[in-house]
């Protein structure tokens, strides 16, 4: 049986790994880092959407909490999308300083965000949605990024 918590936490790990690879690539040469950036940006966007378009919706429906934790998580997603965009611009402008300034900030924001999700939101989602966990994980897996 899949668990929502396990599935999404693992995906956090995957994004962390891509993040580190991207920073490695930029350290070596910002001219050739576009690919690594795209890989990280795509994985992250996919993760956000799996939550926003699948798991959060199910959670909100089940618990009736639309202004609670999921709203705060959506807000943080917006903050992170913003930083991601800035990093993309920095890569285009080949501005290493600007890139690392934003990636550093994103890193901490992302880790705090993941910690809150893994410790609180996912645990709670798992409790409320355990009966439908398989279906929800399947939906997240097969979701197409918009």
């Amino acid at each position: 049986m899949s668990t929502i918590k396990g599935f999404l936490s693992e995906d956090h790990g995957r994004c962390d790994e891509l993040f580190a690879k991207m920073e490695d690539a930029v350290t070596q040469s910002i001219e050739n880092a576009k690919e690594a950036y795209d890989a990280f940006a795509e994985a992250t966007e996919r993760h956000f959407q799996m939550e926003e378009r699948v798991m959060f919706l199910e959670f909100e429906q089940k618990t009736g909490m639309t202004q609670g934790p999921t709203a705060i998580m959506r807000h943080e997603h917006a903050q992170m999308r913003n930083l991601l965009a800035e990093m993309g611009k920095a890569i285009e402008a080949k501005d290493k300083d600007k890139f690392f300034g934003n990636s550093e900030t994103l890193m901490i924001l992302m880790q705090q965000h993941n910690m809150k999700e893994e410790q609180m939101l996912y645990t709670m989602a798992q409790q409320h949605l355990s009966a439908e966990a398989d279906r929800i994980v399947d939906m997240m897996r097969s979701m197409i990024v918009e």
Binding site: D97, K98, F100, N102
Partner: peptide, 9 residues
């Protein structure tokens, strides 16, 4: 506030 220095700066 959006255009603020990054934490690196």
């Amino acid at each position: 506030y959006m255009s603020i220095p990054t934490m690196n700066d």
